[in-house]
């Protein structure tokens, strides 16, 4: 084993320590950058979903013509998050409508509990892309719903289907899922969304 003589590309231990410290600083910089990247995914994800039209609800309703040449079936479904003691059923289980036609349907919700509770409904569509063409004018899912003990309420959804709905979609399933947010409301008074 030959021992290194002084030479240009030989570094002293002090220089190695100095280099190591510099490298350490550079590498440590990657950590907050990647953490920031991770956290930036939260707003980025929302933006991408909106741009791609994966988000279920569409904010802007456009004025459109009714397309009488087509009929679209819309099925309504209701379910509750595990153990949430409400009753939640669609009053109108199915409608057959023309694209562009404004319709109002109802859901019935009952708080079976002996105290007031708050729920939040989250919609989903089948097929997913149908959500892009589903314009809601009014919906109980726009805000949290607080029901007093034993209260029962009929809640409307007013909507129309954009005539640009692709021809391959002949029927749409709209499902609402009610979450119990009573505890969340107590913990975080401001709207976390």
């Amino acid at each position: 084993m030959s021992v290194v003589a002084d030479d240009v590309d030989v570094v002293t231990p002090a220089e190695v320590r100095e280099n190591n410290r510099t490298t350490l600083k550079k590498l440590l910089l990657i950590l907050p950058v990647m953490l920031a990247f991770c956290l930036s995914l939260v707003p980025l994800y929302r933006q991408i979903c909106e741009v791609l039209g994966i988000t279920a609800t569409r904010a802007v309703a456009e004025n459109t013509q009714v397309d009488r040449s087509r009929i679209v079936k819309v099925d309504f479904d209701a379910s509750l998050h595990g153990g949430f003691a409400w009753k939640f059923v669609p009053v109108d289980k199915r409608v057959e409508i023309h694209p562009g036609e404004m319709v109002t349907i109802h859901y019935r919700v009952t708080n079976a509990l002996p105290y007031a509770t708050t729920g939040r409904a989250v919609p989903s569509f089948a097929p997913v892309e149908a959500g892009l063409f589903f314009s809601k004018i009014e919906c109980f899912c726009f805000s949290n719903q607080t029901l007093q003990a034993g209260e029962s309420r009929e809640m409307p959804v007013t909507f129309f289907i954009d005539p640009k709905l692709p021809a391959k979609i002949g029927s749409i399933g709209l499902s609402y899922y009610f979450f119990d947010v009573t505890e969340e409301m107590k913990k975080a008074p401001k709207d976390p969304a």
Binding site: V122, F179, D180, E184, A188, P192
Partner: peptide, 10 residues
């Protein structure tokens, strides 16, 4: 009380 992954909180 955040709701990053909780649909009920958006």
């Amino acid at each position: 009380g955040t709701a990053f992954f909780n649909a009920a909180g958006g």
